[in-house]
Computed example of a mutant assay.
Amino acid sequence: MPWTTRDTMSLKEEFVALARQPGSNKRELCRRFSISPQTAYKWIERYEAQGQSGLQEKSRRPATSPKLTPAA
């Protein structure tokens, strides 16, 4: 029996597609996909604002570091 391998992006896309259907139970989908409701609503909002590119992982690195020690 072959293992089913799925990447994170395809799982996010599947979740968002199911969650956007009329009458979908988002909490049940969260349990099925093992994600928190906060994460689910974040993915849905990003998808609606930016499309598929909104589901890409975002960097957590700060834009600036004002207290960074100078290289010299």
Rank of each mutant, 00 (worst) to 15 (best):
residue 1 M to W: 11
residue 1 M to L: 12
residue 1 M to F: 12
residue 2 P to K: 00
residue 3 W to Q: 11
residue 3 W to M: 14
residue 4 T to H: 11
residue 4 T to N: 10
residue 5 T to H: 13
residue 5 T to C: 09
residue 5 T to D: 09
residue 5 T to P: 04
residue 6 R to E: 07
residue 7 D to Q: 13
residue 7 D to F: 08
residue 8 T to R: 13
residue 8 T to Q: 14
residue 9 M to P: 00
residue 10 S to W: 05
residue 10 S to N: 07
residue 13 E to W: 05
residue 13 E to S: 06
residue 13 E to K: 14
residue 14 E to Q: 14
residue 14 E to N: 01
residue 15 F to C: 00
residue 16 V to R: 05
residue 16 V to T: 02
residue 17 A to Q: 12
residue 18 L to C: 06
residue 18 L to Y: 02
residue 18 L to N: 03
residue 18 L to R: 10
residue 19 A to P: 12
residue 19 A to C: 11
residue 20 R to M: 14
residue 20 R to K: 14
residue 20 R to P: 03
residue 21 Q to K: 15
residue 22 P to I: 05
residue 23 G to T: 07
residue 23 G to A: 13
residue 24 S to C: 13
residue 24 S to M: 12
residue 25 N to S: 15
residue 26 K to F: 00
residue 26 K to P: 00
residue 26 K to V: 15
residue 28 E to D: 13
residue 28 E to L: 11
residue 28 E to Y: 03
residue 29 L to K: 05
residue 29 L to M: 10
residue 30 C to L: 13
residue 30 C to W: 02
residue 30 C to E: 05
residue 30 C to H: 12
residue 31 R to F: 08
residue 31 R to N: 14
residue 31 R to Q: 15
residue 31 R to K: 15
residue 31 R to V: 12
residue 31 R to W: 07
residue 32 R to Y: 12
residue 33 F to L: 01
residue 33 F to R: 03
residue 33 F to P: 06
residue 34 S to G: 03
residue 35 I to E: 00
residue 36 S to H: 09
residue 37 P to N: 04
residue 37 P to F: 01
residue 37 P to L: 09
residue 37 P to R: 06
residue 38 Q to A: 12
residue 39 T to F: 00
residue 39 T to R: 09
residue 39 T to K: 09
residue 40 A to V: 10
residue 40 A to F: 02
residue 40 A to M: 11
residue 40 A to R: 04
residue 40 A to D: 06
residue 41 Y to T: 15
residue 42 K to R: 13
residue 42 K to G: 07
residue 42 K to V: 11
residue 43 W to P: 00
residue 44 I to C: 00
residue 44 I to D: 02
residue 44 I to L: 12
residue 44 I to A: 01
residue 45 E to V: 02
residue 45 E to C: 09
residue 46 R to L: 09
residue 46 R to C: 09
residue 46 R to W: 07
residue 47 Y to F: 14
residue 47 Y to Q: 08
residue 47 Y to A: 15
residue 48 E to I: 01
residue 48 E to G: 07
residue 49 A to M: 11
residue 50 Q to N: 11
residue 51 G to P: 07
residue 52 Q to S: 14
residue 52 Q to G: 00
residue 53 S to D: 11
residue 53 S to R: 10
residue 54 G to H: 03
residue 54 G to F: 05
residue 54 G to D: 08
residue 55 L to I: 01
residue 55 L to S: 02
residue 55 L to N: 04
residue 55 L to A: 02
residue 55 L to K: 04
residue 56 Q to D: 07
residue 58 K to D: 00
residue 58 K to Y: 05
residue 60 R to W: 05
residue 60 R to K: 10
residue 61 R to Y: 08
residue 61 R to V: 08
residue 61 R to N: 12
residue 61 R to T: 14
residue 62 P to F: 07
residue 62 P to I: 06
residue 63 A to Y: 05
residue 64 T to N: 03
residue 64 T to M: 05
residue 65 S to K: 13
residue 65 S to V: 06
residue 66 P to T: 01
residue 66 P to I: 04
residue 67 K to V: 03
residue 67 K to T: 02
residue 68 L to D: 08
residue 69 T to A: 03
residue 70 P to V: 02
residue 70 P to F: 04
residue 70 P to G: 08
residue 70 P to T: 05
residue 70 P to D: 10
residue 71 A to M: 11
residue 72 A to I: 11
